[in-house]
Measured scan of single mutants.
Amino acid sequence: GEEMDTAEIARQVKEQLIKHNIGQRIFGHYVLGLSQGSVSEILARPKPWNKLTVRGKEPFHKMKQFLSDEQNILALRSIQGR
């Protein structure tokens, strides 16, 4: 696969979550399948791509996919709003 700019992906995700008022817990649960603790760690201190294991890269693939389609963001927003 291609190398990803993990810091940039994390920054964009944080931006979207704040902009749409989506909590990290909801994002972690529905998008990444991770706990809030793992999510906040990944978003606060993303490791460089070449330092990640295959498993460590997974959340970034999912985040990139999440960012690529605004429908994903809107869907999360409606879950959050319940």
Rank of each mutant, 00 (worst) to 15 (best):
G1H: 06
G1I: 14
E2H: 06
M4H: 05
D5I: 02
D5R: 03
T6D: 01
T6F: 01
T6S: 04
A7E: 12
A7K: 13
A7L: 10
E8C: 07
I9Y: 04
I9K: 04
I9L: 09
A10V: 14
R11T: 08
R11D: 06
R11E: 07
R11C: 05
R11M: 09
V13G: 03
K14D: 05
K14N: 11
K14A: 05
E15A: 12
E15K: 03
L17K: 03
L17P: 03
L17F: 01
I18K: 15
I18H: 11
K19I: 06
K19S: 07
H20N: 07
H20M: 05
H20I: 03
N21T: 05
N21D: 12
N21Y: 04
G23K: 13
Q24D: 10
Q24F: 10
Q24H: 13
R25I: 09
R25P: 11
R25K: 13
I26Q: 11
I26Y: 09
F27K: 00
H29V: 06
H29N: 12
H29T: 12
H29P: 03
H29Q: 14
H29I: 08
Y30N: 06
Y30A: 10
Y30P: 02
V31Y: 07
L32R: 00
L32P: 01
L32Y: 00
L32I: 03
G33Q: 07
G33P: 01
G33T: 01
S35Q: 12
S35C: 10
S35P: 14
S35R: 07
S35D: 15
Q36S: 13
G37D: 15
S38I: 13
V39S: 05
V39D: 02
V39F: 08
S40C: 11
E41M: 05
L43C: 01
L43A: 02
A44W: 07
A44T: 14
A44M: 14
A44P: 02
A44E: 15
R45K: 13
R45M: 11
P46A: 05
P46V: 05
K47F: 05
K47Y: 04
P48F: 03
P48W: 05
P48H: 08
W49V: 03
N50S: 15
N50I: 04
K51V: 14
K51T: 13
K51Y: 07
L52G: 00
L52H: 00
T53I: 03
T53M: 04
T53P: 06
T53F: 03
T53C: 11
V54P: 14
R55P: 08
R55W: 10
R55K: 15
R55Y: 10
G56N: 07
G56T: 05
K57C: 04
K57W: 03
K57S: 05
K57N: 03
K57L: 06
E58D: 09
E58M: 08
E58W: 07
P59A: 15
P59Q: 15
F60W: 14
F60L: 02
F60M: 03
F60N: 00
F60D: 01
H61P: 02
H61F: 15
H61S: 08
K62A: 07
K62T: 05
K64A: 12
K64F: 08
K64G: 04
Q65A: 12
Q65P: 00
Q65N: 13
Q65D: 11
F66G: 00
L67P: 01
L67A: 02
L67E: 00
S68L: 10
D69L: 05
D69M: 07
E70Q: 11
N72Y: 10
I73Y: 03
I73A: 12
I73M: 11
L74I: 14
L74T: 10
A75S: 14
L76I: 06
L76A: 03
R77H: 10
R77V: 12
R77Q: 13
S78C: 09
I79R: 11
Q80F: 06
R82A: 13
